[in-house]
């Protein structure tokens, strides 16, 4: 806040809350500029040094051929991109189901009253079990086990089981995120709603959940990032998605470049989401610091 030294603490707070007029002290003060430059230069030097070591190592020509084959990269990109479309579909279908199922589970677990005790018990058991098991195992069991039963009318499409498995795994985590949000809303909010004659469900629906969901958006986005990456796990049950496709291409050419292409795709997709999450978290922190709710 050095650049705004002439303003009182309250003025600065007001400025900080105005959209588009946030103080830019960090960028404009000469001291900050110099430290940015130093950080930039040292980063370049560090990674430059690592690159120099790799490029001058005895095995480099071989690694370069099998990981950085430019022609193969270009040739494999259309297939890889097409396969990534499967991951995107998986992600969106599963995420939609997860957000809904996890909310139902969180609500069931947060609802008091003896009548719902068995339901709470079931919901708790579900969350415990699916958080305890490694995801790959669940994908295997569902993807191979259920179609293996050969029951009439049961789908055999691996994409179907991929969606179900990811939904079951992630809903357990996401329901805990929702639940933390519900618990963070002070009981006086619910009491105020009930005192006006709202039913328990109405108090939850109109007063508690809207506040809870708003508070957990950053951690939810974090789980989105995890899901985005974990869509490659379903390659194990035969869904031809990006990772499976790069395996296929690799096997055809005895070359690892497709994996690098896959890595690049994930970096491009995931890093913006990670940045957005960080930005939301720090914005929330700023707001809390400014005293706004």
């Amino acid at each position: 806040m050095t650049a705004l030294g002439g303003l009182g603490p309250h003025d600065q707070e007001v400025l900080a809350r105005l959209p588009g007029r946030r103080p830019r002290s960090r960028r404009s003060s000469p001291g900050a500029l110099r430290s940015t430059a130093v950080a930039f230069a040292s980063t370049i030097a560090f990674f430059g040094f690592l690159t120099w070591i790799a490029v001058n190592s005895p095995g480099w020509p071989l690694v370069q051929r099998s990981f950085f084959n430019g022609d193969l990269l270009v040739a494999s990109l259309p297939d890889i991109a097409a396969a990534f479309w499967v991951n995107v579909q998986l992600f969106f279908v599963a995420e939609t189901l997860i957000l809904a199922l996890a909310l139902v589970i969180a609500v069931l677990r947060s609802t008091p009253g003896p009548v719902l005790f068995p339901v709470r018990l079931l919901a708790t058991a579900y969350v415990d079990v699916f958080r305890a098991l490694p995801g790959v195992l669940i994908i295997y069991i569902l993807g191979f086990g259920i179609p293996g039963l050969n029951i009439d009318g049961v789908p055999t499409d691996p994409f179907f089981y991929a969606v179900i498995a990811l939904t079951l795994i992630y809903s357990a985590y996401v329901s805990e995120v929702y639940r933390a949000g519900i618990d963070s809303v002070h009981p006086s909010q619910s009491a105020a709603a009930r005192s006006l004659g709202l039913s328990q469900w109405q108090a939850l629906r109109y007063v508690v959940l809207p506040q809870a969901v708003r508070r957990v958006i950053p951690p939810l986005l974090n789980d989105f990032i995890g899901l985005q990456k974990d869509t490659v796990l379903v390659s194990y049950i035969g869904v031809v998605e990006i990772f499976r496709q790069s395996q296929i291409t690799e096997a055809a050419h005895f070359n690892f470049t497709p994996y690098l292409a896959t890595a690049a795709v994930f970096l491009v997709m995931t890093i913006p989401l990670a940045r957005l999450t960080d930005w939301l978290v720090s914005r929330d922190r700023r707001r809390a610091a400014a005293g706004a709710r």
Binding site: S195, L196, Q211
Partner: peptide, 12 residues
Amino acid sequence: GIVFQAFNLFPH
């Protein structure tokens, strides 16, 4: 009707 010490308005 009841009114509380801490207002308990719905902030959202």
